[in-house]
């Protein structure tokens, strides 16, 4: 029997009272480590060059001061940005939020998902992490990337999303 009950706008499910799932705690450490490696890769040659070449003391101090501030920011940033990221899996869609200054919430209905991809870098695997990408039509790269998921959770999510996407049989 076909039913088409009227839905009052006020009754539509909102996103106010959802509980956002946070990313894996190990992800913060991984990002900090990655940023630290980046800082070392840049700082070591710069340090060597400025000691070998006769650079006046004041520019050198300024350079070091800027370098230390940037390094500190890079180290602190994952702690600021990552808690702002989160996802919610609902019955019919998945929500993802991110952003510190520009905050955004993206929603993808399961019946629009074309395919799902899990990827992990060697770093990710060391920390037992994975990235989940959801693709919809018309997008170029992954339309929704959730990185820093525990690899078991990522696999679980992948199966769940696929099942949901497949279950939504469309009638013409």
């Amino acid at each position: 029997m076909f039913q088409n009950p009227e839905i009052a706008l006020a009754d539509l499910p909102g996103t106010e009272d959802v509980t956002w799932q946070t990313l894996d705690a190990a992800y913060k450490r991984l990002r900090q480590l990655q940023n630290l490696i980046l800082v070392v890769i840049i700082a070591v040659p710069v340090g060597i060059l400025t000691t070998i070449n006769p650079v006046p003391i004041i520019p050198r101090l300024v350079l070091w001061a800027v370098g230390i501030i940037v390094a500190a920011l890079l180290f602190l940033w994952p702690g600021i940005a990552l808690p702002k990221r989160g996802y919610v899996v609902r019955d019919k869609d998945i929500l993802f939020r991110k952003g510190v200054v520009w905050q955004s919430v993206t929603a993808i209905p399961f019946n629009r998902i074309q395919h799902v991809e899990i990827s992990s870098t060697p770093f990710d695997r060391k920390f037992n992490l994975a990235q989940l990408q959801l693709f919809t039509a018309g997008g170029s790269s992954g339309d929704l990337k959730i990185d820093g998921l525990n690899s078991a959770v990522a696999e679980q999510l992948r199966l769940f999303v696929l099942e949901k996407a497949g279950a939504t049989v469309e009638h013409r």
Binding site: W102, S104, A107, I108, P109, T136, A137, G139
Partner: peptide, 26 residues
């Protein structure tokens, strides 16, 4: 519609505003 995003800058948050982006297959 394929997916929906709501974005808010710091200023928009202060003014209680937001930008809505609707992603189509085109």
């Amino acid at each position: 519609v394929q997916r929906v995003t709501i974005t808010q800058s710091r200023y928009q948050r202060r003014k209680n505003l937001a930008s809505l982006r609707l992603f189509m297959a085109s």
